[in-house]
Amino acid sequence: ITGDVSAANKDAIRKQMDAAASKGDVETYRKLKAKLKGIR
């Protein structure tokens, strides 16, 4: 179950990262990237 949750989280975070990148929001992008590392 835990694996599914983190996989879903990663997917959601990647989508947020894409949105931040397209807006040029480097700050948010970095925060999300750090979150991704924390999940692993």
Rank of each mutant, 00 (worst) to 15 (best):
I1G: 11
I1Q: 10
I1L: 09
I1P: 08
I1D: 09
I1Y: 11
T2F: 12
T2S: 12
T2R: 12
T2K: 11
T2Q: 10
T2Y: 10
T2G: 11
T2E: 08
T2H: 11
G3S: 07
G3H: 09
G3Q: 08
G3C: 15
G3T: 09
D4N: 10
D4F: 05
D4P: 08
D4Y: 03
D4I: 10
D4K: 12
D4V: 10
D4H: 12
V5R: 11
V5C: 14
V5N: 11
V5L: 12
V5H: 09
V5I: 12
V5F: 11
V5Q: 09
S6Q: 10
S6A: 07
S6P: 08
S6R: 13
S6M: 09
S6G: 09
A7E: 09
A7T: 08
A7S: 10
A7Y: 08
A8P: 10
A8Q: 08
A8W: 04
A8K: 10
A8S: 11
A8Y: 05
N9D: 13
N9G: 07
N9Q: 13
N9C: 15
N9K: 13
N9F: 14
N9R: 13
K10R: 14
K10W: 14
K10Q: 12
K10D: 06
D11L: 06
D11E: 12
D11W: 00
D11T: 08
D11I: 11
A12Q: 10
A12C: 15
A12D: 13
A12E: 13
A12P: 04
I13M: 03
I13T: 02
I13R: 00
I13Q: 02
I13F: 02
I13E: 00
I13H: 02
I13P: 01
R14A: 04
R14Q: 08
R14N: 02
R14V: 05
R14H: 07
R14E: 05
R14Y: 07
K15M: 07
K15T: 05
K15P: 01
K15F: 04
K15V: 06
Q16C: 15
Q16F: 05
Q16A: 14
Q16K: 06
Q16E: 08
M17A: 02
M17Y: 01
M17P: 02
D18A: 15
D18L: 15
D18S: 07
D18V: 14
D18I: 15
A19N: 05
A19L: 13
A19I: 13
A19E: 14
A19D: 12
A19K: 08
A19R: 06
A20H: 01
A20S: 02
A20E: 00
A20Q: 01
A20D: 00
A20G: 01
A20R: 00
A21I: 14
A21S: 05
A21K: 14
A21L: 15
S22R: 14
S22M: 12
K23L: 07
K23E: 06
K23I: 14
K23T: 06
K23N: 06
K23Q: 08
G24Q: 03
G24E: 02
G24K: 04
G24T: 01
G24Y: 02
G24S: 03
G24R: 03
G24W: 03
G24I: 03
G24V: 03
D25Q: 00
V26P: 03
V26R: 08
V26M: 15
V26A: 08
V26W: 15
V26Y: 15
V26E: 13
E27T: 03
E27N: 04
E27S: 04
E27L: 02
E27M: 02
E27K: 05
E27I: 05
E27Q: 04
T28N: 06
T28M: 09
T28Q: 12
T28E: 15
T28V: 04
T28R: 09
T28Y: 08
T28D: 11
Y29R: 06
Y29Q: 07
Y29A: 09
Y29G: 08
Y29K: 12
Y29W: 06
R30E: 15
R30H: 08
R30Y: 07
R30W: 06
R30A: 05
R30S: 03
R30V: 05
K31E: 13
K31A: 05
K31C: 15
K31F: 03
K31Q: 05
K31H: 05
K31M: 04
K31D: 09
L32F: 01
L32A: 01
L32Y: 03
L32M: 03
L32N: 03
L32W: 03
L32H: 01
K33M: 11
K33V: 06
K33N: 04
K33S: 04
K33P: 00
K33A: 10
A34Y: 01
A34D: 11
A34L: 06
A34T: 05
A34S: 05
A34F: 00
A34V: 04
K35W: 08
K35L: 15
K35E: 05
K35P: 00
K35V: 11
K35Q: 11
K35N: 02
K35G: 04
K35Y: 10
L36A: 02
L36H: 03
L36S: 01
L36M: 04
L36C: 12
L36T: 02
K37M: 10
K37I: 12
K37V: 13
K37G: 07
K37A: 14
K37S: 11
K37D: 15
G38T: 12
G38Y: 08
G38S: 10
G38A: 11
G38L: 06
G38F: 07
G38N: 10
G38D: 08
G38K: 14
I39M: 13
I39E: 06
I39S: 06
I39P: 05
I39R: 06
R40N: 13
R40A: 14
R40C: 15
R40L: 15
